[in-house]
Simulated scan of single mutants.
Amino acid sequence: MPHGLTEEHTLIRDAVRRFAEAQIAPISERLWEEQAFPYGIWQAAGELGFAGVPYPETYGGGGGQWLSFVIVLEELARVDCAVANALMANSSVASLLNAYGTESQKRTYLRPILEGRRIGAIGLTEPNAGSDAANIATRALQDGGEWVINGAKTFISNSGTDVTGPVVIAAVTGTKPDGRKEISNFIVPSGTPGFGTGRKLKKIGWRASSTHELFFENCRIPGDHLLGERGAGLRQTLAQISTGRILIGALALGILQGSLERSIAYMKERRAFGKPIADFQALQFKVADMATHAHAARLMLYDAAARKDAGERFDQQASMAKLFASERAMEAAHQALQIHGGYGIMSEYPVSRAFGDAKVLEIVEGTSEIQRMIIARELLSSA
């Protein structure tokens, strides 16, 4: 048992690993090839409590720790990162609803996405607003007791499925006294007139993660679908983003661990020049590096999650963990592919699929460059 983990953490890891090996691994290649959202897996994950681990039991959650949720995502991503991302993206919506939603909003929208009956999507990114979230152009104007939304979102995970909803979006609702945009968050249920789903986006990784463009054309929602205070949208989202970086780091750790285990297994099985390729020092060094990086990433991520659970500041640790884990996952996926040789570039092999998945992790929840900016700013401001 890793230092600092309890027996409960080990039981969670074992349960998720059994689930991932039995339910996800056999269909992972098909999900990749068909770019199909895994409805049955999502429902089962919700019923087993995986989606709601760190959220209140009152709304269908498990009342557990964020460290436990990191372990859940790590074990799922070890087998299929796209499936793990469905839980990660869902948690972004769950965190916003849990932190800022009214009692009615929580019971109506939070409980279903924690229990696996629905899946949440967060609509922040736009064609010209990614890392620069303050640059969003989607607008929401008050008209009597309603809000009228116009605009577009892109790269939205968990969108376009039969169980998507709610979608929490950020929209400009006015101008602040200092001239900056006033941004607010809104809950938009699926099926709302004027809310449309655009084309399904094809990605180099996360192919089983349903990703679409979203469009809002005179989309009317009731006034009580404002989430939290008017004008607090950007602050609400940024308050959750460091948690998202820990969770993306957990996906990266899963890829790192999976790449290591697959490489070791293949090296013991494959023979070249009359002996197992595990006997070649050049390949031994590759798995030694993978194991070292997985250990370091695990310590960083578990530390950041434990800080969050303890109510301590963890922003810098989250950025460091996300940066390190995602870059090392990309490196491990690359080396695993090299170890597998020609078989590694065939999509029927998990190492090939993990390579595409790993690249995505260096982009989402703030690119590696953004993480370095955040870390440097923290260091220089406290020096």
Rank of each mutant, 00 (worst) to 15 (best):
I169D: 02
I169L: 15
A170Q: 02
A170K: 00
T175M: 12
T175D: 08
K176M: 11
K176Y: 03
P177Q: 11
P177V: 11
P177K: 13
D178E: 14
D178H: 10
G179L: 11
G179S: 07
G179D: 08
R180E: 12
E182W: 03
E182N: 14
I183H: 01
I183V: 10
I183W: 01
I183R: 01
I183A: 02
S184W: 01
N185I: 01
N185P: 00
F186A: 01
F186M: 03
F186V: 00
F186Y: 04
I187H: 00
V188Y: 00
V188T: 06
V188L: 06
P189M: 09
S190T: 14
T192D: 06
P193C: 11
G194F: 06
G196Q: 12
G196F: 10
G196T: 15
T197C: 13
R199N: 14
R199S: 15
K200W: 10
K200R: 14
K200T: 11
K202T: 13
K202E: 13
K203C: 10
I204W: 08
I204D: 14
W206R: 03
A208Q: 08
S209E: 11
S210K: 02
S210Q: 11
T211D: 06
T211R: 07
H212C: 10
E213F: 08
E213V: 11
L214M: 13
L214K: 04
F215H: 14
F216V: 04
E217M: 13
N218E: 12
N218K: 15
N218W: 05
C219H: 04
R220E: 04
I221F: 04
I221S: 02
P222E: 12
G223L: 05
H225W: 03
H225N: 15
H225M: 09
L226D: 01
L226K: 02
L226R: 02
L227A: 03
L227W: 01
G228S: 05
G228E: 05
G228A: 07
R230M: 09
R230N: 08
R230K: 15
R230V: 08
G231I: 05
G231M: 07
A232T: 08
A232V: 06
G233K: 00
G233A: 10
L234Q: 09
L234D: 05
L234P: 04
R235M: 12
R235Y: 09
Q236V: 02
T237V: 12
T237S: 12
T237H: 08
L238K: 12
L238V: 06
A239S: 15
A239C: 06
Q240F: 01
Q240S: 08
Q240G: 03
I241S: 13
S242G: 07
G244S: 12
G244T: 10
G244A: 07
R245M: 14
R245Y: 08
L247W: 07
I248D: 01
G249Q: 02
A250E: 04
A250V: 11
A250R: 00
A252G: 15
A252Y: 02
L253C: 11
G254L: 09
G254Q: 09
G254R: 03
I255N: 05
I255P: 00
G258D: 05
G258I: 03
G258W: 00
S259N: 14
E261K: 15
E261Q: 15
E261C: 07
R262E: 15
R262M: 13
S263K: 14
S263H: 14
I264M: 15
Y266T: 07
K268T: 11
